[in-house]
Amino acid sequence: MLGRILAWVATIVIGLALGAGSAWWALQAGHGGFMQHMGQWSWSRETGSTGAGPYTRAVIARDGLLALSADEALYLNLDHDENNKALREDCVYELAGGSIPARWWSITLYAPDNYLAQNNDAAYSIDSTHIDADTPWTARIAPVRGEAAHWISSRAARRGYSLTLRAYNADEGFPADASVLPTLRTISCPDTAP
């Protein structure tokens, strides 16, 4: 009798573990399955959509709850440098862009926990109200501003942070090609020759 009880307990525990593990794996591995990619950026048009599938909806709820649907705003993410390495607080990057075809856009840095980095630099983002959007522009992504005209502070962002480009009321079909998206390049890293 005791053996049968233990067998049922083991069956339930293993079943729960398998179910939870497979769900976690599906949401991690499946994250890339519904994303679109262009240049260094990736995004999903299913964000907020009433037509999103259950896996997409779960990932968006976890990583971007209350995000607007793609008809209103597109959220594009960048989390690797030009060498496909994770972004690091101790590196200095330059973001270069030009005109982005949207009524308003911003680029914000988020720490790996999906919140703003824990610093008091008040340099969380850049946005089109502060940049001459019709001419080429650059922004420094680094723990200190230096001489940069535009700066997003990565202080306390640790390793694995990301940048989110919000494009509100973007032109239809945005992004048409990679040329309308900013590009990131590494200026220096402690273990990389300048």
């Binding site: 049922w8 069956t11 339930i12 079943g15 729960l16 398998l18 179910g19 259950p54 709820a61």
Partner: peptide, 26 residues
């Protein structure tokens, strides 16, 4: 019986988590 029961529990848990995450977050 144990294998089938374990698989059914796993499938139910899997979908409960996937469908439950948005509602729990909201």
């Amino acid at each position: 019986t144990y294998v089938v029961a374990g698989l059914l529990i796993a499938i139910a848990t899997h979908f409960a988590i996937v469908f439950g995450i948005p509602r729990v977050m909201m």
